[in-house]
Write a protein that binds this DNA or RNA. Structure first.
Lengths: 237, 237
DNA sequence: ATGTAACCTGTAAACTTTTACAGGTTGACA
DNA sequence: TGTCAACCTGTAAAAGTTTACAGGTTACAT
């Protein structure tokens, strides 16, 4: 194992293609002591059918099985990653409610693993899983690698989400005007158009005008959807 | 300097009081090689007047000066932390647009520092700054400490935000019912009550009933504010 | 058995949002 | 000088939201 340095992470910066980026992550994972590497990206739009992208270098047979059995819906690490930012280590305990899944995974040589979730400024979630067939995780290894893995996850996630956001959600790139942001912010706090017109000292018509423009820019169907998107994407901070 | 171990971070877990927690962070920062430590927590509610909490052990004279001059509004590290998750190192470049502030800070012995932002599941932002008067930051030190600091920040932030969320936003603790979440989710995607009544096969009255209950639970004034809160707080994931 | 949380439904009036229409000013920049 | 982005304004009808009122069922735990 090479010395695992931050330099190697810097190399991830600016990569254009998500597959190329994932290949680099696989190499980093190997240097880090893990044969397998998986990345799950969670784009929370639309909220009722959020997008999930999965990259992994697991055995192809397992990849197929995971999809056929729809294990994504069962996988406790994925559910964990949606609610927490703390790392989890694969264990019998973790897979209590999905024994079948866990046994199935192990039959494909996926014995030892840990997963580190993270978030970015746009409410987009990511989770890096590192795994291997052999050598169990020791306390010493966790001590040494825990924080590095969190950092690896964060850096990889920022790059992945940059690439995939631009590709799948062009509206995140459209800049809102100052007034549009003002009006959305007050709307997010529950003010009506007429209240906002008083606050900003403009007419109700103008408030609705800016709201309408922001709604179009954000590719939303009404102000509620617009304001949720803008808020989650961090445009109102 | 003691060996800086993850164990020490685990000790942060479960602390009840934010001041006690910050004291522990100061100790960790010292062991880590920095005399000064500052933590900024950003609670994005209401969006038009977000809450900011600051903890630091800077010289008292500087703390006063920072407040009197309202440097919070100028401080480029704070602005950076609101938009990015990457660390920044204090440098002439960073403070280009606020030379006065930077010179003032250095006159109080704040010469060397770096800041690491982070986010949690609830859209609450945090930023840890570590600083000292002496020894400049070397490449080797950054290599060694970068990922540890990110992890330190993350762990400290989760604890801080746990403590302060419960204290300042009791509505984050109130659990929403399944139906309330369903209805809020569809609303967040821009569906009207009558569309949702078709989707869930319930009456329009019932949709509005759940929306109303959720609005009260979330301490919001209307469904728009309710849905933004729920979404930012991660309740709709 | 009694309570409790979650769920479900109706009506009506007052208010707010959405969507058309149509028109204007200002300041920056080439 | 012309173009552009950002800003501003009006009216009116249709659709949606909010807030009262008032009533109900079901499942589960003490």
């Amino acid at each position: 194992m090479k010395t695992w340095q931050e330099d190697q992470l810097n190399a991830l910066h600016g990569v254009k293609c998500e597959h190329k980026l994932f290949e680099m992550m696989v190499t980093l994972a190997r240097d880090f002591g893990f044969d397998y590497c998986a990345y799950v990206l969670h784009i929370p739009f639309p909220l009722t059918r959020p997008g999930v992208k999965i990259f992994n270098n697991y055995p192809v047979a397992w990849q197929t099985r995971y999809q056929v059995q729809n294990y994504l819906a069962v996988d406790p690490t994925v559910r964990h990653g949606l609610r927490s930012l703390l790392p989890v280590i694969w264990s019998d305990d973790l897979f209590l409610s999905s024994r079948e899944f866990w046994e199935d995974a192990r039959s494909f040589g996926l014995n030892v693993g840990l997963a580190q979730p993270c978030r970015d400024e746009n409410a987009i979630g990511g989770m890096l899983t590192l795994a291997r067939s052999g050598e169990p995780l020791s306390e010493a290894e966790l001590q040494d690698k825990g924080s590095k893995m969190a950092w690896f996850t964060q850096v990889a996630h920022l790059e992945m989400s940059r690439i995939l956001c631009a590709k799948t959600m062009p509206e995140t790139e459209v800049p809102l005007s100052t007034r549009e942001i003002d009006v959305l912010r007050w709307t997010a706090d529950g003010k009506t158009s007429s209240e906002i017109s008083d606050i900003l000292d403009i007419s109700v018509r103008t408030v609705n005008f800016h709201l309408g423009n922001a709604t179009v820019k954000l590719n939303a169907v009404n102000k509620t959807a617009a304001v949720v998107r803008a808020a989650l994407l961090g445009m109102l901070h």
